[in-house]
């Protein structure tokens, strides 16, 4: 069974351990500004929302890539950027309506959540289980996808 990230903002305390873990895993430094998961703080509602790629089925980023640099990891189902192939054209960054694939000027490539090869470090780091990695069926992934289709897709089934 393929798994996916399940995010429960109600449990998030905003500690940013996920951002630290993600950035360390991918860059070797603790640097939340390089994290692929970001916690947004809605101060006046008392609400914190961890936010990252949903690995959506439509994969705008992957479809938009002109050089086939974004591929599906067959084990995790993650849409993964092949850094050696990415030319840094940034087309994917404006194609993704979620804004979860970003250009990193210092390396000249784009980056996005890759589910850490099936062991997402944000999940391990989260002290409150606000981010979990669970069987895809449990996550309301379909709900997310249908939301995505409704709200953002260029295409809707007529």
């Amino acid at each position: 069974m393929q798994k996916s990230l399940h995010i429960d903002p109600g449990k998030c305390t905003g500690c940013l351990q996920c951002e630290m873990a993600c950035s360390y895993e991918h860059t070797g430094a603790i640097n939340p500004s390089k994290s692929r998961i970001k916690v947004f703080d809605f101060e006046h509602e008392g609400r914190k929302v961890p936010y990252t790629c949903t690995q959506c089925a439509d994969a705008w980023c992957m479809n938009a890539c002109p050089v086939d640099a974004i591929v599906i990891d067959l084990i995790t189902g993650a849409k993964v950027v092949k850094e050696s192939t990415c030319v840094g054209c940034k087309v994917c960054t404006i194609a993704c309506p979620f804004g979860t694939i970003n250009y990193m000027a210092d390396v000249g490539k784009v980056q996005k959540c890759d589910l850490c090869d099936g062991d997402p470090k944000c999940v391990t780091a989260c002290p409150t289980a606000a981010i979990t990695y669970v069987d895809a069926d449990w996550t309301g992934l379909d709900r997310m996808r249908s939301w995505a289709a409704k709200a953002n897709t260029a295409a809707v089934a007529a």
Partner: peptide, 17 residues
């Protein structure tokens, strides 16, 4: 009380909102 909240890096999260 609305929720608790953490400071940076805190796994306790005693803060009150």
């Amino acid at each position: 009380l609305v929720t608790n909240a953490a400071c940076f890096g805190c796994t306790i999260a005693c803060g009150r909102i």
